[in-house]
């Protein structure tokens, strides 16, 4: 029993989210997930909204909306650490969904707190620690951002990045794709938060996401539904499983150094990985250009 949080009477049951008793059956989910820009050229990058400096008690912060994803990143640091002398900074990332949000892929990872998991009768508000999915995102973001930070300039201190996912897209498409898309944007948002915190970095890390279908075509910044529709037109078999998804992060001005890569999907060979990396690099450059002009504007 958790004595530190008010989680209701002990015999409280969390009801399952059932079906709707409406005559026409299932609840009409609002058609979301497609932004206005998605109708244009498919290699365009979805519009995103970015704002910095909204959190007053953090050293730096950034807020990003893309599609229905809402991400908030706060950077705390440099803060002191004690103990033995450490000549450079320590860096950590913690990524958390607000407790009511269904996490992409939780049906696979069987996260304990989820409402659609029938054997969980716990209040999501009482969750301690990170779920598998949050761990996965946290460690990717940490890996991608770590090489960019000039840790030697910050002895005896720590940087802590806290990512809060305020909203996600409704799970109308492949959860893996949703998860990777989210991760991709978290990396971009966290980089901007680091800049806002005046943390000295070698370069701003930006990342991109691509999807490759069976025939090997690379689709930059896939947005679920559009591609799925196309798939249905092609053939109706399990093409989704044959798709290869890739997220890769770069320091574009530092010789395009690759700082993080995450590829998932069917048959992956070297050729495809190269294609994926190049596609992600293209996207990361476009995002970088946007972020650059945003930052310069913010100063003037």
């Amino acid at each position: 029993m958790d004595r530190r949080r008010l989680l209701g009477p002990l015999n409280t049951v969390i009801p399952n989210i059932g079906i709707s008793s409406e005559i026409n059956g299932s609840k009409s989910t609002p058609q979301t997930g497609i932004s206005s820009s998605s109708s244009s050229n498919k290699n365009d990058i979805e519009n995103f909204f970015l704002k910095t400096g909204i959190i007053e008690n953090a050293n730096g912060s950034a807020y990003l909306e893309v599609g229905n994803n809402v991400i908030e990143v706060s950077v705390f640091g440099p803060r002191p650490i004690r103990g033995s002398f450490i000549d450079r900074a320590s860096f950590s990332v913690e990524c958390k969904f607000l407790p009511y949000i269904s996490q992409p892929g939780d049906e696979l990872f069987n996260t304990n707190n989820q409402f659609n998991n029938s054997n969980s009768n716990t209040n999501a508000n009482g969750r301690t620690g990170l779920t598998t999915i949050e761990h996965k995102i946290s460690s990717y973001v940490e890996t991608a951002l770590l090489p960019s930070i000039i840790l030697e300039k910050y002895p005896k201190s720590t940087f802590d990045v806290f990512v809060t996912i305020v909203a996600t897209e409704t799970p109308t498409y492949n959860s893996n794709e949703k998860l990777m898309r989210l991760t991709n944007w978290i990396v971009n948002c966290a980089s901007v938060a680091l800049v806002d915190a005046n943390v000295e970095v070698k370069d701003i890390v930006t990342s991109g996401i691509v999807k490759s279908n069976k025939s090997g075509d690379i689709i930059i910044d896939p947005r679920g539904q559009i591609e799925d529709e196309q798939n249905e037109q092609d053939e109706q078999d399990d093409q989704n499983e044959e798709n290869v998804l890739g997220v890769a992060s770069f320091m574009n001005l530092n010789n395009d150094q690759l700082v993080g890569i995450w590829v998932e999907g069917g048959d992956i060979d070297q050729d495809l990985v190269t294609k994926v990396i190049n596609g992600c690099n293209d996207m990361s450059k476009k995002i970088r250009a946007n972020i650059n002009s945003f930052l310069i504007d913010s100063l003037q």
Binding site: L6, N57, S74
Partner: peptide, 14 residues
């Protein structure tokens, strides 16, 4: 039954 979560750059128990 409220659970308050204040963003102050820490995690763990409330």
């Amino acid at each position: 039954y409220p659970v308050i979560d204040i963003q102050r750059g820490r995690s763990g128990a409330p």
